[in-house]
Design a protein around this nucleic acid. Structure first.
Length: 286
DNA sequence: GTACTTGTTAAACT
DNA sequence: TAGTTTAACAAGTA
């Protein structure tokens, strides 16, 4: 489940490898991955160059020549794996990190570059997508997102405004990309745990102190997770197929039934909030 | 066979 | 109208 730190880890990794690379050929194994007319998609991409890779929230933006952009969303299980040509042997070459075979049965799209390097898009659940858009559409799409907690403009005042008078739960609000960009189910639970706030509490009911704690928690969690190249819970891997290291810092997510590591008394509970599995400590979090 | 997992969005609801 | 909630999407695991 790639959230902001995971997607940014991938963006950095891919930038190092494929900026300026020319696309020679595409192989589309699962057509519904591409949300643009397939012929148009292939025509524009073939022979084109990757000029830049940006990110907003969990969305990746590949900039091509002539103000064309490819939006890539990994959703829950998308993986972007980049192989230099000497490591591109299919069938589990010994150089392949984590024994991640490419291509595999979940490979949906392959991009072959002129220098023989290859980008694989794997996606078990087929929710991820590639979409070719012009500059106007790209700008319009990006406008739907709000600030990310790691941006300097994401100050306490901005955060308070988002929460004031909201009737929905804290959890639902943290997951709403139009209000806060980049948090997903894992980091939303972790942020609530750090701030000692129950995820199913009404957002508008938080005190000033709680708001400040939650604001700090959001920023710190994402920064720390980024430092450790993300969390691998199910199948997140970076552009080389390497897993993230943040899992060992998780205090709430996936720890239901285990003792809370902060109060050392209560057992972490799992409930459903905003239609999502939600983990919290019934003693620490008020 | 059933329940459960998640990011986003369209549709339904208040 | 706007804010909020729910179901749907898909395929694998327990």
């Amino acid at each position: 489940m790639p959230e902001l730190p995971e997607v940014e880890t991938i963006r950095r990794g891919l930038s190092a490898g494929l900026l300026g690379k020319k696309i020679n050929r595409l192989e589309i194994l699962w057509p519904r991955t591409v949300k643009t007319n397939l012929q148009k998609f292939a025509k524009i991409l073939t022979g084109n160059k990757i000029l830049n890779i940006e990110r907003l929230g969990k969305l990746l933006i590949f900039e091509l020549k002539n103000r064309q952009y490819v939006l890539v969303h990994l959703k829950m299980t998308g993986q972007l794996i980049y192989r230099a040509h000497d490591k591109c042997v299919a069938g589990g070459h010994k150089f392949l990190a984590q024994d991640l075979k490419t291509p595999n049965r979940h490979t949906r799209l392959i991009i072959y570059f002129a220098d023989k390097s290859i980008l694989y898009f794997n996606d078990l659940r087929k929710f991820g997508y590639f979409k070719l858009v012009d500059e106007l559409t790209k700008e319009k799409t990006l406008k739907q997102f709000s600030l990310e907690p790691i941006q300097p403009e994401f100050n306490l005042n901005h955060f308070k405004k988002i929460f004031s008078n909201r009737k929905t739960t804290v959890k639902a609000l943290l997951l709403n990309q139009k209000l806060i960009a980049g948090l997903g189910n894992i980091y939303a639970d972790e942020a609530c745990f750090r701030a000692k706030i129950r995820p199913n509490k009404k957002a508008g009911d938080l005190t000033d102190r709680q708001l400040k704690n939650l604001w700090l928690a959001c920023k710190n969690i994402l920064r720390q997770a980024l430092k450790y190249k993300g969390t691998t819970f199910n199948n997140f891997v970076d552009e080389k197929g390497v897993k993230g290291n943040y899992s060992r810092f998780l205090r709430a997510y996936g720890r239901q039934g285990q003792k809370c590591q902060r109060c050392r008394q209560a057992i972490i509970k799992k409930i459903k909030t905003a239609n999502r599995g939600t983990h919290y400590c019934p003693v620490c979090q008020k």
